[in-house]
Computed example of a mutant assay.
Amino acid sequence: MRYEVKETFARPAAPTAPAPPAAAPAPPAPAALAAKVRTLAPSMTRSMQRVAETVAADPAGCAALTVTGLAARTGTSEATVVRTARLLGYPGYRDLRLALAGLAAHQESGRAPAVTADIAVDDPLADVVAKLAHDERQTLADTAAGLDTAQLGAAVAALAAARRIDVYGVGASGLVAQDLTQKLLRIGLMAQAHSDPHLAVTNAVLLRAKDVAVAITHSGSTGDVIEPLRVAFERGATTIAITGRPGGPVAQYADHILTTSTARESELRPAAMSSRTSQLLVVDCLFIGVAQRTYETAAPALAASYEALAHRHAPRGGTSR
């Protein structure tokens, strides 16, 4: 049985005093622009993709264009150019032009990585290693550049104070879910990973305030992951989504969203391969952040686990004949 994502649920909240207006998020740094394009382009309309891919491919040339000029170059409208700039995180086209100028200067300095071709079926293994290594480095750099540290800090705080932590993921994301729970268990937190959608939902029903649920889904639309997150959200747990599509369905049930990047998908390199790399980086960031916040208890727990493993793998005593 596959779960379907239900309509958007507005979590009920007790009446509180009006909160002060939140400050607008800062636009992405120029170095993060290319990463934002790679992350968000798959979820854009075709016309917006043309704008995003054009500015990422030729930042110097596009920085010299007016909004009308860029619209003409990409065969789109001025409104599409402005919408693309805003989707990439810039208040308007003027801010995007400034970022493009900065990115062009960054590339001219010689620090921008070269783009390699996709892996071909007849590539020698040496080329496969080189191309994979390049793509992995780029994926990690893109994820680091696009990771919202305010969201990351809030997620770390929730995990560090959690009574119980449930992590949902299927397929390759399920392996990442297991990695996160294994790390959290070693510093004394109560965490469990769920790849079975039925068990995930039945466990999510038991979550309450001060519990945390983490959903890991590259596509942002995996029903078997979104459904338990929705249940946890409705039960009052703090919810976290680790996803490559921050505008996907999973976001409607996530209090905190941590965005991952991914390398170009090809016949021999499906999205699950490269998304796993970026997800593991985010998981490591979460773990280190939680370990820092809970150091007084995390350090002894880690030491005890190391000692237990060392004792288990030590050669047994006794004499040989």
Rank of each mutant, 00 (worst) to 15 (best):
M1G: 12
M1K: 12
K6P: 00
E7I: 03
A10E: 13
P15I: 05
A17H: 08
A17W: 11
A29G: 08
A29Q: 11
A31S: 11
A31H: 09
A34N: 08
A35K: 07
P42T: 07
S43V: 00
M44V: 01
Q49W: 07
V51L: 05
A57H: 12
D58M: 09
P59Y: 03
V67W: 00
T68M: 13
G69N: 09
A72Y: 06
R73T: 11
G75S: 08
A79S: 10
T80G: 08
T84K: 06
L87M: 15
G89P: 02
P91K: 04
Y93M: 04
A104M: 07
S109M: 06
A112E: 12
A112S: 11
P113D: 01
A114W: 04
A114K: 11
V115P: 01
A117S: 14
D118A: 15
I119N: 00
V121I: 13
D123K: 03
P124Q: 06
L125A: 12
L125Y: 09
K131D: 08
H134C: 10
D135T: 14
A144Q: 05
A145Y: 03
A145V: 05
L147A: 02
A150R: 12
L152S: 05
G153W: 04
V156H: 06
A158S: 12
A158L: 04
A161E: 15
A162D: 09
I165M: 05
I165R: 01
I165Q: 00
D166V: 07
V167P: 02
G169M: 00
V170R: 08
G171Q: 04
G171K: 01
S173P: 01
D179E: 14
D179R: 14
Q182I: 01
L184I: 07
R186Q: 09
I187F: 05
I187Y: 01
H198C: 11
A200G: 11
A204S: 07
V205K: 09
A209W: 05
V212P: 03
V212M: 06
A213W: 00
A215R: 00
A215T: 07
A215N: 03
T217D: 06
T217C: 08
H218I: 00
S219H: 05
S219C: 08
G223F: 05
F233S: 07
E234A: 15
A237V: 01
T239I: 04
I240C: 02
I242H: 02
D255C: 07
H256T: 06
L258D: 05
L258G: 00
L258R: 03
T259C: 04
R276P: 04
Q279F: 04
L281Y: 11
F287M: 06
I288F: 10
Q292E: 15
Q292N: 13
T297L: 11
A299M: 13
A299E: 13
A299K: 14
L302F: 08
E307G: 06
E307Y: 07
A308H: 12
H311S: 13
H311Q: 14
H311I: 11
R312T: 14
G317E: 10
T319R: 13
S320L: 14
